[in-house]
């Protein structure tokens, strides 16, 4: 049984149908990339998994338990971490407070502090910025904070939404390096990316989402070699 199992999921906003019978799996330990154009429904899919956008029909199961009617905080407590699109760190809280909130479920303070140190181990720059307000960090640092915040709660599945968006190439490389190392440590990752090339290179498997539908799926290498993917998302052809 896959760790995350999405079946025939439909969701939308008012009259707009953002997801049309989407089915997708993430196996334990797998890194799955979800690529697609702006407005294809990638963020909506992650938000539906997290319980922020209520599904209209279909099912979501995580580690065997159904998620469809769960509220976001209940979903997070089951072991999902979500670094949302646009980073959405808390701008007027310090870096430390942001990270402490990432471990909101952890009530043992000593344990929480160890978890924070551990998450910062991946991003040493955060350790130097602990008492700075989140809003004063650079874009790249904010992205690292968003990922670190999602990791403090020790998720089994990490949802990453456009982690490279708006970052300088050097920082992008660093972020992808960290994603690879998380995956190597056995954390399952569902990665939404505009940077399809880098995402597919890293991913075990990938899905292509177009106007709310999954149109292609395969291993990362297969998708990267696919004519249609190359034309539409890799800027070739």
């Amino acid at each position: 049984m896959p760790l995350l199992e999405v079946r025939d999921l439909e969701a939308g906003y008012g009259p707009i149908r953002a997801l049309d019978r989407v089915s997708l799996d993430v196996e334990d330990g797998e890194l799955v990339a979800l690529i697609g154009a702006n407005g294809a429904g990638k963020t909506t899919l992650l938000m539906a998994i997290s319980g922020v956008v209520p599904p209209r029909s279909g099912s979501i199961r995580f580690a065997g338990s159904p998620l469809a009617a769960a509220k976001p905080h209940e979903v997070m407590r089951l072991g999902i971490g979500h670094a949302p699109e646009g980073r959405r760190i808390f701008p007027r809280l310090t870096v430390r407070e942001n990270l402490e909130l990432g471990g909101f479920m952890q009530t043992d303070r000593a344990k929480l502090s160890r978890d924070i140190d551990e998450a910062c181990g991946l991003f040493p720059v955060l350790g130097e910025r602990m008492d700075q307000l989140g809003g004063t960090l650079s874009g790249g640092e904010q992205q690292m904070l968003a990922i670190a915040r999602a990791l403090v709660g020790h998720p089994r599945l990490l949802l990453l939404d456009e982690p490279s968006l708006g970052l300088a190439p050097l920082i992008v490389a660093k972020v992808f390096e960290v994603i690879a190392s998380l995956s190597a440590r056995g954390i399952s990752v569902l990665l939404v990316e505009q940077n399809a090339r880098a995402a597919l290179k890293l991913a075990h498997r990938g899905y292509v989402l177009e106007t709310g539908r999954i149109t292609l799926t395969g291993s990362g290498a297969e998708l990267a070699a696919d004519r249609r993917v190359r034309d539409a998302y890799l800027g070739e052809g």
Binding site: H82, F90, L93, G102
Partner: peptide
């Protein structure tokens, strides 16, 4: 306090607060 931190988080971004596991 933990509650106070959660209050400040919700006031800054309720969705992000929910995504770290806060019962908004």
């Amino acid at each position: 306090t933990r509650l106070g931190k959660a209050m400040r988080a919700v006031s800054q971004d309720p969705t992000a607060a929910a995504l770290v596991g806060i019962d908004v």
